[in-house]
């Protein structure tokens, strides 16, 4: 398997898993308007996943995009652990998405100038959507952080919990390094500086305290996950697994 394939697959996995989480919100939003907004985000993410899987399947040559999405186990998924974290309350979702959106925004901005034309095009399309996602999650973070005492406590708690999953966003392994060296991928370490600035600005507006960097979870690049992912996949993959001969 080529590094380009692995790299593309990782991006697809994060989009799909976060999209799956967002789709769980459907009919449960805090207002009907926000319910629609959450579904729109899920739809964007599924669209992104679809694009990156399509490319990964082409690079793979033997599996379809749906095989990649529905017929791999936890240990073969490479999404960021942040993306698989449970929705929790609306504040937890807002914080998770905000941290991820900020990363994605910077990541896609860089990836849009990849020497690989397809990756660059997929990134450019995703970037437009992620800009809006970041705007949406930032605005909500500020509302909740600077809303009532209760809402401030809730999002601060979510932030303190989810912070441990932000470390691995900026890791570089042999795949990342190879992609970077060939002008195809992104220097994640460089992104961290801009990400910090973006996060700090918004947290300040939201009257939230930036957690101190402590234990940082790691491993998704090697298929190591939190226990949530298995259940997410079991539910998502049920039909294609239960009826392997069926077309839908």
């Amino acid at each position: 398997m080529s590094n380009l394939f692995k790299y593309t697959l990782r991006i697809a996995d994060s989009s799909l898993v976060l999209g799956q989480r967002m789709s769980e919100w459907c009919s449960k939003g805090p207002t009907l308007e926000e319910d629609i907004a959450l579904s729109n985000i899920a739809l964007d993410l599924f669209g992104q996943a679809n694009g990156f899987y399509e490319y990964a399947a082409e690079l793979d040559g033997s599996r379809s995009k749906d095989d990649l999405a529905f017929k791999r186990n936890e240990r073969e998924f490479f999404n960021h652990q942040l993306s698989e974290q449970e929705n929790g309350n609306f504040g937890t979702t807002t914080v998770r998405n905000f941290l991820h959106d900020a990363f994605n925004f910077l990541f896609y901005t860089e990836l849009a100038s990849s020497k690989d034309e397809i990756l660059a095009a997929l990134a450019a399309k995703s970037l437009k959507e992620v800009k809006y996602h970041l705007r949406h999650s930032s605005n909500w973070l500020i509302r909740l952080g600077d809303g009532t005492n209760e809402s401030n406590l809730k999002v601060q708690e979510a932030l303190d919990f989810l912070w441990q999953y932000t470390g691995e966003l900026f890791e570089m392994d042999e795949v990342d390094n190879d992609m970077l060296d060939n002008g195809l991928g992104v220097d994640n370490i460089q992104l961290k500086i801009k990400w910090d600035e973006l996060i700090n600005n918004t947290l300040k507006k939201a009257k939230l305290k930036r957690p101190i960097d402590g234990y940082m979870a790691t491993g998704s690049r090697k298929g190591i996950h939190t226990e949530y992912l298995g259940f997410l996949l079991a539910e998502m993959q049920f039909l294609p697994r239960a009826y392997p001969d069926a077309k839908w």
Binding site: T31, E33, E34, I36, A37, N40, R135, H136, N139, R143
Partner: peptide, 20 residues
């Protein structure tokens, strides 16, 4: 129409609902 607590939210809610 849409319901919203503030104007930024109103604009975003309108975007979500009426420009799908």
């Amino acid at each position: 129409n849409v319901h919203a607590a503030d104007k930024v939210m109103a604009l975003e809610n309108a975007r979500e609902l009426y420009t799908r």
